[in-house]
Design a binder for these strands. Structure first.
Lengths: 217, 217
DNA sequence: TAGATTGTTAATCGATTAACAATC
DNA sequence: TAGATTGTTAATCGATTAACAATC
């Protein structure tokens, strides 16, 4: 039974709802209407109701949404009710930064392994997580459930390792390498974080904003 | 004279074109048709031509696009023909990782200052860039042109510092703090990198993919 | 019950794709 | 010239917004 596909545009907005609801929850707010939330989040109330109704009716007419309930439901939708074991391939600065980022654990994302090819890193630990050499990857994957592999190594090696990871049974890649992974006909979901792309988009907007400012004078 | 607004959807795709053209250039490819490029990039040729024609006609009928020329033109569109001076506020793991990331410099993004509130970091340097205490920010901004401020500090402090930065004349923020900055009526462009949002989107797709796989059996 | 607010259908808007005349 | 491929207009598709009946 094929459920209707929900667009990634909607999915991209869900973590933001989750964040705002989490804040409301912390502030002790019990209920919220789509209208109230829309004002806080700077989106239309209509969009909020449409988005949520992709997943079912979480609200109640005349009342609005129960903050705690909605927060938990969105958490479930996003898969935050289960633990995701993560390994990081490439223990450079970024890899270490991610390994040190404890906030992820609260969301259920737990880093269980760090891998690199650099022998100088062997024996080192980051936040209690041992750095292993890449040739131990196969054994490690056999012995542990790995849900997500994070790629923070140079882009030249990314394709080969990504394919190896899929061979080892990993179905999700969080890719920080600055390439589009070539994973042809492979059963894997990929989420890209391209920091320089983000910087370039910012740069475009800087130039545009700057010339708008100059035209104002 | 108001030029027609180009949608952020288009802008988001430009860095990717830039990347592919850079690769073609490295491979010594001289010309490319929208059709060839579309096959490589997995987008429609129509979209490529539409996107590019937002900025002008870079191609030639019967020939296609000159790779080098188009690469450079997109670079200009993205503002990569000028230097962007960056400061980083928050020299934790992520801040240090960004400071160490030399690739940005090739694109014209140069980190010129690092700031933190932690006295333990005072006197430290990352890749030759001195870590300064946050109270030196005002003097620093008076003495240097700062184009972009990167926020890699805890989210609690982000709003206050962001507003201070705008007061000091900064018009662009690259925000890694996990909040939507409250910058009401301020002349500033913001680019958010919300790593946990990205992870949650991945997580959603993992769960979806997993259940699709199970249904196949 | 009256007022509030959802869930959902319909209308609008914008983005993507298709088609083709222009032209190299 | 004939073939190729752009630039651009028109058609389609999808996403967002508006409207309102259902209902708490």
């Amino acid at each position: 039974m094929q459920e209707k596909e929900i667009s990634q545009a909607v999915i991209r907005r869900m973590p933001r709802y989750y964040r705002y609801l989490g804040e409301l929850l912390e502030d002790g707010v019990e209920r919220i209407s789509s209208n109230d939330l829309s004002r806080r989040m700077n989106v239309t109330a209509s969009q909020i109701r449409q988005d949520l109704n992709n997943f079912g009716g979480f609200g109640q007419q005349g009342y609005g949404y129960n903050v705690k309930y909605l927060y938990e439901e969105i958490g479930k939708i996003l898969g935050l009710n289960q633990q995701h074991n993560i390994i990081v391939i490439g223990v450079g600065n970024l890899g270490q930064a991610l390994a040190n980022y404890v906030k992820f654990e609260k969301l259920g994302f737990v880093i269980i392994g760090l891998f690199d090819v650099n022998p100088a890193l062997e024996g080192m630990s980051v936040r209690g997580i041992k750095v292993r050499m890449l040739d131990e990857l196969e054994t490690f994957c056999a012995e542990h459930r790995v849900d997500i592999a994070t790629l923070t190594m140079p882009k030249e090696k990314a394709d080969a390792i990504a394919n190896q990871l899929v061979d080892l049974g990993i179905h999700a890649i969080w890719n920080f390498a600055h390439v589009d992974l070539k994973l042809i006909d492979r059963d894997v979901v990929v989420e890209n974080v391209h920091l320089s792309d983000s910087l370039m988009q910012l740069s475009y907007n800087i130039v545009k904003n700057r010339s708008a400012r100059e035209n104002d004078n």
